[in-house]
Simulated assay, not measured.
Amino acid sequence: MDEKIKNVIYNLQQNNMAGYFVGNKNELIDLLTTLINPGDTVGCGDSVTLESTGVFDFLRNGNYVFYDKHRPNLTAEEKRKIYLSNFSADTFITGTNAVTADGKLFNIDGNGSRVAPILYGSKQVIVVVGINKLVNTVEDAILRTRQIAAPLDAKRLGKKTPCTSLGRCIDCRHKQRICNDFVLITGQFVKNRIKVIIINEPFGF
């Protein structure tokens, strides 16, 4: 673990959030087995990082009650029920768009279903982040999310927003815009409710 990551973890702790460091996705899964109890209810946010690290498969195949929003053929109402269930989950697990050097989390969301349980409800929130998401300042976090993450995510979701063809954000007002909720988390009342796991590899957008 280099000094930059040590500093991020220290500052997360200063902001009443826990910080962890793992070398790869196998170590990530090992750590999750210690943080999530058998039989727990687990919700999730939409995340390329969780998909590519095998976290979704781990939850589907483990001894957990997994609120799996990625099941095929879910109706809009079924998805809404899952989103609401996430507020009462024992654990909500998600990625994040950026983590600043001073231990803050920044996210942009489309409908709020990912950021809302991070803010309130779930007893425990686990945030999984690749080293590519570590930035120096809040301004860097916003720039990174708007100009790198959001256009790639909009393209992944099949949106027709300008950023999918331009490859950059122009602060559009398109009806399919996914940049609706800008959320900066600077700390927590409940110590270690939010746990941030940094993987020593790049993952996600």
Rank of each mutant, 00 (worst) to 15 (best):
H174K: 09
I185Y: 02
P151V: 05
R193G: 01
I170H: 02
V183E: 05
I170G: 00
I178V: 15
R177V: 10
S165L: 13
C179Y: 03
G158D: 13
I170V: 15
V190L: 11
R193N: 02
A150M: 15
K191V: 03
I185G: 02
K159L: 13
A150L: 13
I185A: 01
I198L: 12
I185D: 06
Q176P: 07
I185E: 00
I194E: 02
L184N: 10
V183G: 00
K160Q: 12
L152C: 08
I194V: 15
R177D: 13
I197Q: 03
H174N: 14
F182K: 00
K195W: 04
Q188F: 05
D181P: 06
I197V: 15
F182E: 06
T186H: 05
V183S: 04
Q188G: 03
I197L: 10
L157W: 13
I170P: 01
G167D: 00
I178E: 12
V196T: 14
R177Q: 11
R173T: 12
L152D: 01
A149D: 01
C163Q: 05
V196E: 02
K191W: 02
G187K: 07
S165F: 11
A149E: 03
Q176F: 09
P151E: 02
K155M: 12
H174F: 09
K195I: 06
C179S: 09
C172V: 04
F182M: 04
D181C: 08
T164W: 10
Q176N: 11
D181W: 12
G167L: 04
R173A: 09
H174W: 09
L184K: 10
V190T: 13
K155T: 10
D153M: 12
K195G: 03
T161P: 09
F189D: 02
V196K: 08
T161K: 09
A150D: 00
T164L: 10
L152K: 14
I197F: 09
R193L: 05
D153W: 02
T186V: 12
A150K: 00
R168D: 01
F182G: 01
K195P: 05
T161F: 10
L152G: 04
I178M: 14
F189C: 00
Q188H: 01
K195F: 08
G158I: 13
R193D: 03
F189Q: 04
I185T: 15
D181R: 06
C163T: 04
L166P: 04
Q176E: 15
L157Q: 14
I194N: 02
L166G: 06
A149K: 03
R193P: 00
